[in-house]
Simulated scan of single mutants.
Amino acid sequence: MARRAAGGDDDLLRSVAAGDAGALALLYERHAGAVFGYLLRLAGDRMVAEEILQDTMLAVWRSAGAFEGRAKVTTWLFGVARRQAHNRLRLRAAPLPAAADLLDRADQGAGPEELAIAAAGGTPVAAAIDLLPDHHREVIALVFVAGLPLADVAEVLAIPVGTVKSRLHHARAAVAAQLTAQEVSE
């Protein structure tokens, strides 16, 4: 496949909408790592996350023409991935995986946030994160694993930015309280 000069994500998505498979490949190359990390956090299983990623890219191929440009392309991609994951995982009703499950992601070219979370696997921090409610863990996955800004997290989850901040605050407070309780009991 001949590579052309890469444009912005908006240009790539317009090309995808026009049927350009090469543009879809470039969009995949740019965003698959972060989307996969998020999906792995939701699914807890590498193969399921890979399948959902493929479902996501197929949905992007089919619905690129519906992108209205009101959000960033990355935000839209995470929204598509989230819907695909929830459609697939609804049948399983599986909880979000433990932070320790991210340890095997280190060989996937993980970013600094992912490496920090993966390094925390099996630690008291990971155990405290595992105790969080799903809606708090999902915010942590989008902020620290996927690296999305709070405004983008709000858009992906279809909640106000204030709610994202609140969930992140409560998640951090719960982790800190759990760590303090562990220190006292030792």
Rank of each mutant, 00 (worst) to 15 (best):
L12Y: 04
T56C: 10
L40T: 01
D107M: 05
Y28W: 14
M57N: 04
V35H: 02
S166A: 13
P95E: 06
L96Q: 01
A64G: 07
L148H: 01
W61V: 03
R92Y: 11
E155S: 15
L179V: 11
L132C: 03
R82N: 15
R62M: 13
T180D: 12
A176I: 10
F144S: 06
D101W: 05
E155R: 12
E183N: 03
M1K: 09
A66S: 13
R41P: 00
V60T: 09
A64Y: 02
P160G: 15
A127H: 10
M47N: 09
T75F: 13
A49Q: 01
T74H: 04
R46W: 04
D9I: 14
P112R: 10
A154C: 09
G65A: 13
D45P: 01
A98M: 06
D152K: 03
A141G: 10
H135N: 11
A176D: 15
Q182S: 08
L42P: 00
Q54E: 12
L26K: 02
F67E: 05
D101G: 10
L89Y: 02
R14Y: 05
R105A: 06
E113I: 09
V48C: 07
G65W: 07
T123M: 06
Q178M: 08
V153I: 06
A181E: 12
V164G: 11
A154R: 04
A116G: 14
A127G: 12
T163W: 00
L103C: 06
V80H: 07
A81S: 10
F67H: 05
V125F: 13
A93M: 08
R83P: 00
I129T: 01
A93G: 07
R14E: 15
L115W: 10
A146H: 00
L26E: 14
P160H: 12
